[in-house]
Amino acid sequence: MNPLLFWLFSLLMLGFGVSVVVNRNPVASALSLVSSFLCLAALFVGLDAYFIGAIQVIVYAGAVMVLFLFIIMLLDLRAEERRKFNKVAFFGGGLVALAFAAQLIGVLGKHPRGDKPFPALNLPPGEQLNDLKHVGETLFTSHNLPFQVVGVLILVATIGVIVISKRELK
């Protein structure tokens, strides 16, 4: 991937991620989340994972975000009013997150195996990477049982959602 494009999409993704956290209006947060996911899909495409990039756009930027926006508008959430500011919780949480980021940067600085450029793909001349075929082959040969289990999981989730939303909470 072109380093310029990598930095462009990474910074956009992180910027929209920050905007998810700091926006007071839930609709603005949800729209920032969509933009962040779209930039992430661009990073996936840059890593030659075209299929993953496509399902990222379809599932996350499409289905999941529609669900989020639908719920926000169903509950009719306004921008939250300013509450009593809990200083201890705010600075404690910020400190934990900053310490986590510092640890992470420290570990990556001492990780020489990852400090190499990405190796080139070895494809037959004149051929494009057909990653959908390979992902499908791996999915249906070596990971067939987990695939079936995920199908059952989605069925259970569908039934569970119906049960949860039908039951009258008193």
Partner: peptide
Amino acid sequence: LTLNHYLLVSGLLFT
């Protein structure tokens, strides 16, 4: 670009 760049961006997004 190296692997560490991607891991750094991923870690920052996680943070």
